[in-house]
């Protein structure tokens, strides 16, 4: 089955759901699905005998300004085909149901997306920061993130070495004044 057929099959299976099939500017056509239907659609993709998308190949998150997007790259080892889904959520309330129950390997991917992009995966059993310390402020992969000036008394920026170290060949007077 080619990727477009897979996505069309999903659209036929869930009538009345607001889907958006996009084929431009991408190597894999993808389907934008409403956040609240994520788990059900993913379960269908995994279990349908013609689709059997049994592996979550990758889960990424993208900051698109007003909305944050979660991208699911799915793959079937049985039929050897791909499928790509996207979930778009508002920046103010980035709530996406977890797909951990569908593909257990999603657990860590979702922790990473939570840590770095601040996506709230509802129903996740262990949604903690994974890369950064627990008391870190903000989610660095968001475009508007500003680095905090210091962390536990450690500065996050460094002086130019030439500004702080006296030069070896500086005149005597200057050396003394340091």
């Amino acid at each position: 089955m080619n990727e477009k057929n897979i996505l069309e099959k999903v659209m036929a299976e869930f009538p009345g759901v607001a889907f958006e099939l996009i084929e431009e500017n991408t190597d894999h056509p993808y389907l934008v699905i409403p956040a609240e239907r994520t788990a059900g659609i993913c379960r269908f993709l995994r279990d349908d005998p013609d689709l059997r998308l049994d592996a979550l190949s990758n889960l990424s998150s993208v900051d698109e300004g007003e909305i944050l997007t979660v991208v699911y790259h799915l793959f079937s080892y049985e039929h050897r085909h791909y499928s790509v889904l996207k979930v778009r959520v508002p920046r103010g309330a980035p709530d996406v149901p977890t797909v951990q129950t569908v593909w257990p390997g999603a657990g860590w991917f979702e922790r990473e997306a939570y840590d770095l992009m601040g996506i709230n995966f509802m129903g996740h059993n262990d949604l903690r920061r994974i890369m950064l310390p627990d008391d870190w402020v903000g989610h660095p992969l968001r475009k508007d993130w500003v680095e905090q000036e210091e962390y536990h008394g450690m500065g996050t920026s460094r002086n130019e070495p030439m500004d702080v170290l006296p030069l070896a060949d500086a005149p005597e007077k200057e050396k003394q004044s340091d």
């Binding site: 500017n25 991408t26 190597d27 894999h28 190949s57 990758n58 990424s60 993208v62 900051d63 991208v71 790259h73 790509v84 992969l141």
Partner: peptide, 29 residues
Amino acid sequence: KGEVYVRSESARGEMGYYLVSNGGLNPER
């Protein structure tokens, strides 16, 4: 402008880069 997901076989298995471009000089994501 556009996006790709490319996988290749590294020594530790599939290494996939998901790249989003906005048509500029730097990758968007």
